[in-house]
Amino acid sequence: MDAMQFALPVLGIVAAAVVTFYAVSFNEIREKSLQDWDDSESDNGGFRPTSSSRERRARRQASKNTKK
Rank of each mutant, 00 (worst) to 15 (best):
M1S: 15
D2H: 06
M4D: 02
M4V: 01
M4G: 01
Q5F: 06
A7C: 13
A7M: 10
P9Q: 13
P9I: 03
P9R: 05
P9W: 04
P9Y: 07
V10G: 00
L11P: 00
L11Q: 05
L11N: 06
G12E: 10
G12M: 12
I13M: 15
V14K: 03
A15W: 04
A15L: 11
A15T: 05
A16S: 15
A16M: 11
A16G: 11
A17W: 07
A17K: 02
V18F: 05
V19W: 04
T20M: 10
F21C: 14
Y22S: 11
Y22P: 00
Y22I: 11
Y22Q: 06
Y22R: 11
A23Q: 05
V24G: 09
V24E: 10
S25K: 04
S25R: 07
F26H: 15
E28R: 15
E28S: 14
E28Q: 15
I29W: 01
I29N: 02
I29E: 04
R30D: 09
R30N: 12
E31S: 10
K32N: 09
S33E: 15
Q35Y: 08
Q35G: 03
D36E: 12
D36P: 00
W37I: 04
W37Y: 14
D39R: 02
D39S: 05
D39V: 06
D39W: 06
S40A: 11
S40K: 14
S40P: 00
E41S: 11
E41L: 05
E41T: 09
E41Q: 09
E41A: 07
E41I: 03
D43P: 00
D43T: 10
D43C: 12
N44Y: 08
N44A: 13
G45V: 06
G45H: 08
G45C: 14
G46K: 01
G46Q: 01
F47N: 12
R48K: 09
P49K: 09
P49R: 08
T50M: 10
T50G: 02
T50D: 08
S51F: 03
S51D: 07
S51R: 01
S52W: 03
S52L: 03
S52T: 14
S53N: 11
S53E: 08
E55A: 12
E55R: 03
E55L: 07
R56I: 02
R56W: 02
R57D: 10
A58I: 08
A58D: 14
R59I: 06
R59L: 08
R59D: 05
Q61Y: 01
Q61V: 02
A62C: 04
A62Q: 05
A62S: 03
A62W: 01
S63C: 15
S63V: 13
K64W: 13
N65H: 12
T66S: 03
T66E: 01
K67G: 00
K68D: 08
K68V: 09
